[in-house]
């Protein structure tokens, strides 16, 4: 396609006239983006493609010979009970953790949005502090908090006459315990929602109040649509992070506890933990690569579905 600019015919690419200035701008854009582009190719895309190749081999880093095994690793996944178990645990966690963390984060952000003055800064910091705590420390901390015998959580439940469960050793309660732990770090999501709430024009609320809208109506018809972009973003990001959960659970159930008695059984076996075990404890890197690609496929499918569905619900300013 071409367009006439100042009497000259100029090509149009993607709706943008392809002038000398445009080409000049593109060079600068590419120059400034190059560190990321190079990093992506070398550190992400390259290794990903390499593991795709490895997933069709029996690659073991301490074996001198690597053989091509076709789809054997993928076929093995179908028969491996750990794959199904760890996928179930991971998806169970994701399905509960994502909406819960979004709901609590939204509640906290709405509260923050109503607080003014000096205390606002304090609460913003307080909500965010858990996010700067190292994941290993969080795992260790929750080993103490969730202890069925002397933990704070069961202590609080006991205050209300409830005999708390064994969060760490009863397979039924292990995943709920992990979900409680994960809610400790909703600060990131709170900050995103808080920023989105600040961008909602106050005139809309004023107009709604004049029209007699209740607080719930305002929340449902103004707040939620106006921050739906942020809600969708955190929905996608939190889903991906949940499917990749590793450090905290590894610290709680597999790190220093390796080889020790645990009542958790298979309930704490999450997908990336199993992948790690296959890759770095028994050195089946080829199989672990296939596991990594299955996780990638699962995340990709879920994300595509989320994006498709979001078109009906997400409002972007300027659309």
């Amino acid at each position: 396609m071409t367009a006439g600019i100042q009497g000259r015919e100029v090509r149009v690419i993607g709706g943008v006239p392809w002038t000398r200035n445009t080409r000049q701008d593109l060079k600068w854009v590419l120059l400034f983006l190059s560190p990321w582009i190079i990093g992506f190719i070398v550190l992400t895309a390259g290794p990903m493609l390499w593991t795709l190749y490895l997933s069709f081999t029996n690659y073991n880093p301490i074996r001198p010979v690597t053989n091509f095994v076709g789809i054997e690793n993928y076929a093995r996944m179908l028969k491996d009970p750990h794959v199904l178990n760890s996928l179930y645990n991971t998806i169970f966690y994701t399905v509960l953790h994502v909406p819960l963390s979004m709901g609590i984060a939204l509640l906290l952000a709405l509260m923050l949005n109503r607080i003014g003055g000096r205390s606002a800064g304090f609460f913003r910091t307080a909500f965010y502090i858990p996010n700067v705590t190292p994941a290993v420390a969080v795992g260790t901390l929750f080993l103490l908090l969730l202890n069925g015998n002397s933990g704070v959580i069961n202590g609080v439940l006991g205050f209300f006459g409830i005999d708390g469960p064994s969060w760490l050793n009863d397979p039924t309660w292990v995943k709920p315990g992990i979900i409680i732990m994960s809610l400790w770090t909703v600060g990131n999501t709170v900050v995103i929602y808080f920023a989105a709430l600040k961008n909602v024009p106050l005139e809309m609320y004023e107009a709604a109040r004049i029209d007699g809208a209740s607080a719930w109506d305002q929340f449902r018809n103004i707040t939620v649509p106006m921050i739906s972009g942020a809600l969708f973003f955190t929905f996608v990001i939190n889903t991906i992070a949940s499917l990749q959960l590793f450090t905290e659970v590894y610290t709680m159930f597999f790190g220093a506890q390796q080889g020790q008695s645990s009542g958790a059984g298979d309930a704490a076996e999450f997908y990336v933990i199993y992948l790690f075990h296959e890759a770095f404890e028994v050195f089946r890197m080829g199989y672990a690569s296939a596991l990594a690609w299955l996780l990638f496929a699962v995340i990709l499918v879920i994300t595509v579905v989320q994006i498709r569905v979001s078109r009906r619900f997400v409002y972007y300013e300027g659309e």
């Binding site: 550190l43 992400t44 290794p47 390499w50 490895l54 880093p61 450090t247 890759a279 890197m285 672990a288």
Partner: peptide, 11 residues
């Protein structure tokens, strides 16, 4: 190469 990808999620 494989460690970069696999450790990215694991630590």
């Amino acid at each position: 190469v494989s460690m970069v990808l696999l450790l990215a999620a694991c630590g």
